[in-house]
Computed example of a mutant assay.
Amino acid sequence: MKPSAASAQPPRLDETQRLAWLRLIRSENVGPASFRALINRFGGAEAALAALPDLAARGGSKRRIVVAGEDVVAAELARASKLGARFLFRGEPDYPPMLVVTEAAPPVVAVMGAADIFLRPAVAIVGARNASLSGIKLTRQLAAELGGAGFATVSGLARGIDAAAHEASLASGTIGIFAGGLDKPYPKENGPLMRRIVDGGGCLLSEMPFGWEPRAVDFPRRNRIVAALGLGLLVVEAALRSGSLISARLAGELGRHVFAVPGSPLDPRAGGTNKLLKDGAILVTEVSDIVDALRPLGSVPVVLRSHVAEDAETASGDPTESDRSRVLRALSPVPAALDDILAHADIHPGALQLILLELDLAGRLERHSGGRVSLLSGST
């Protein structure tokens, strides 16, 4: 399952562009979706940086947006260099190919370790932090056998199932995803495991800035990357209300296979996995259940993408105040699809994208999976 070689490679950003990209993604209220919209609108990060204050003001921001300065980026670059980390930029050849083809892929990720592991097919493995001994034993067995079958593993470096998956695949290759910065391991007791991953030929990855302490809202973002990097996602143990089920939902939204290990109805840690099986997940009792489902998919995609996404809408002119009023009336705290907003507001797609960008930069918009958007509470 080796990835096919690309006949040509996309160009790399020069140092000036890299600094501008980092400044832009580190600026206030700029996430992957708004970053992409800004690059498409202005043709480059430097022009987008200059436009941020005006865009946020037009979106209704009551104060000047904080634009990351060159000193902020310089400090982060120095911290990364000290730790032996580096940055991968979306559109460049070493950016993870499984990640670049997903909706709202992070424009910049920080990595430590061997980035060529992203060219290997992988399986994400997640599960309960308070895992049972049998769950940990099965996880180790499946992860080791997946490694023997040529698959790397991906997980979130949490206690329990995540840690067991990483430990069992140190020799065959594993990828750990951070919810915070690469210099902020969580939980701290897994620090030695993270070092072993890097030393053993695996890789650590985060989209968050160095120095960023992980918050509760950051873990779903981490889970999305975990789900994206695998051809499929396996849940070993999970309660009915757990982050592992969020990962499984995200994997399904990304078109990945979802696998689950059945468990006793008397064990709360099996409630989530059993529900996944009822909802159509692939039942797993041995590694062949996973390998047989994934082999027909081939390897990871080889993707050649320009730095500016080709499919983004651009407006022929700025939206009018009437356009903005109609879009605001169409929006609410309930997520809405862009097609529905377009139809209701009777507006050009490019104008709608700019209005949403303004609201996003003003901190008034929330983006959801599937391209849906909603107004944050109190932003009407």
Rank of each mutant, 00 (worst) to 15 (best):
Arg224Ala: 04
Val226Ile: 15
Gly271Leu: 07
Gly201Glu: 04
Ser242Ala: 12
Leu231Arg: 11
Gly243Leu: 01
Gly272Ser: 08
Val198Leu: 11
Met194Pro: 03
Gly201Phe: 08
Gly211Met: 12
Glu213Ile: 14
Arg269Ala: 15
Gly243Gln: 00
Glu207Asp: 10
Met194Phe: 14
Glu207His: 03
Gly255Ala: 05
Val258Trp: 04
Leu266Pro: 02
Val198Lys: 10
Thr273Gly: 12
Thr273Leu: 10
Ala227Ile: 08
Leu283Asp: 09
Ala216Val: 14
Arg241Ser: 13
Val284Arg: 02
Leu234Lys: 12
Arg241Lys: 15
Gly243Trp: 00
Gly232Ser: 12
Gly280Lys: 09
Phe210Cys: 01
Ala281Ile: 09
Thr273Asp: 01
Asn274Leu: 07
Val261Ala: 03
Trp212Thr: 15
Val217Thr: 11
Gly202Asp: 04
Gly211Phe: 14
Gly211Val: 10
His257Ile: 01
Leu234Glu: 07
Gly201Ala: 13
Thr273Cys: 13
Ser247Tyr: 06
Arg195Asp: 15
Ala216Asn: 11
Phe210Glu: 00
Arg241Val: 11
Leu205Lys: 00
Val235Gly: 08
Leu266Ala: 15
Gly280Gln: 10
Leu205Glu: 06
Val261Phe: 07
Val226His: 03
Val258Ser: 08
Leu204Ser: 05
Pro265Gln: 11
Leu231Glu: 03
Ala281Cys: 08
Pro192Ala: 14
Leu283Phe: 09
Phe210Lys: 01
Leu233Asn: 01
Glu207Phe: 01
Val258Leu: 07
Asn223Val: 03
Asp279His: 14
Arg215Cys: 08
Ser247Phe: 13
Val284Lys: 00
Leu204Lys: 06
Gly230Cys: 07
Asn223Lys: 05
Arg215Thr: 10
Gly255Asn: 05
Ser206Cys: 09
Ala239Leu: 07
Gly243Cys: 04
Gly211Asp: 10
Asp279Thr: 11
Leu229Tyr: 05
Leu276Val: 01
Arg195Ile: 07
Ile197Val: 15
Leu234Arg: 10
Ser206Phe: 07
Ala251Thr: 11
Gly272Phe: 04
Arg269Cys: 07
Ala281Asn: 05
Asp267Ser: 13
His257Lys: 10
Gly211Lys: 12
Gly272Asp: 03
Gly271Glu: 15
Met208Leu: 10
Ser264Lys: 13
Leu276Gln: 00
Pro192Lys: 08
Pro192Arg: 11
Ala228Gly: 10
Ile225Trp: 01
Lys275Arg: 15
Asn274Tyr: 02
Leu283Asn: 06
Val284Trp: 04
